[in-house]
Amino acid sequence: MRQIPVDTSGATVMVAQPPQLKMRDKKTGQIALDGDTGDNLMTVDVLFVMNGNAEVIPVTVAEPGISGELAMGTPVALTGLVARPWENEFNGQKRHGISFRAVAVTSLVKAG
């Protein structure tokens, strides 16, 4: 699968919604797992602000990659952020988009 590295060096990134378990199947409650490690996958909605534009994007990260208190509004660093184009067909309708995955989401607030 194609992966496109995302440069976050000029962006302000903060938590829009705290981490939540990513569901593989919402009907059955099955949790999504990392294919390599078997760790639970989490979704963190972040506000990504760059060049005067702001957008909330959901970022998937394995549970061990989440560190610090990630409450709403907390500034964070996104380590190893990549964008992955996707496409599928559901009920005869083609759908496509971009998903975001990071190695880590780390709070930039100093523990005190």
Rank of each mutant, 00 (worst) to 15 (best):
T28A: 13
T12W: 08
L41N: 01
L108V: 04
Q3H: 10
G80Y: 05
M23N: 04
T60R: 03
G97A: 09
V109Q: 13
G97L: 07
S107K: 07
S9G: 08
V49C: 04
G68D: 06
T37C: 00
T37E: 00
G29K: 03
G80S: 12
G65I: 06
F48K: 05
V56M: 12
P58K: 05
N91Y: 02
G68Y: 01
T106F: 00
R2Y: 13
G73P: 01
Q20R: 15
G112V: 09
Q20E: 15
Q93M: 09
I57N: 01
A71G: 12
N51R: 08
G35Y: 04
D39W: 04
L81K: 04
K26W: 09
G35D: 09
G97H: 03
Q30Y: 01
I57C: 03
G38Y: 02
A111S: 13
Q3L: 11
E63I: 10
L81E: 04
A71W: 00
Q17V: 14
S9T: 15
E87K: 15
E55G: 00
M72T: 15
R2K: 15
M72D: 11
I98E: 01
F100P: 07
L41S: 00
F48Y: 15
H96R: 14
G97R: 06
S107V: 13
Q17Y: 05
G38P: 02
M1Q: 09
S99D: 15
D7K: 05
N88M: 12
V105P: 08
G92C: 07
G38F: 04
A71N: 12
V13F: 04
H96S: 13
H96M: 12
R84G: 06
A11F: 12
F90T: 15
V59M: 05
V6I: 15
V105M: 06
I31M: 14
L81D: 06
A11P: 06
V105G: 14
V15M: 07
D25M: 03
D36S: 07
L81H: 03
T74N: 04
T60Q: 11
G52W: 07
A11C: 11
T106W: 00
R24F: 13
T43N: 10
A71S: 14
S67T: 13
P64T: 07
M1F: 08
E69W: 02
D7N: 13
T37G: 01
N51H: 13
W86I: 11
T60D: 08
Q3G: 04
V82R: 05
M14K: 10
V46Q: 10
E55Q: 14
R24Y: 14
V61E: 07
V44T: 15
A111R: 10
V59W: 02
G29Y: 02
A83E: 09
A62M: 06
N53F: 03
R2N: 10
W86G: 10
V15F: 03
T74P: 02
N40L: 06
R24D: 13
G97V: 10
F90C: 12
G92Q: 11
P58F: 07
M1D: 09
K27A: 13
T106Y: 00
N40D: 14
T74Q: 09
A32V: 02
R101N: 09
K22P: 01
A111K: 11
V76M: 05
T37K: 00
G38D: 02
R101Q: 11
R101G: 08
V105W: 02
N91R: 11
G10E: 08
K22E: 14
N53K: 05
V76S: 05
F48T: 12
T106P: 01
K110I: 14
D45I: 05
V13D: 02
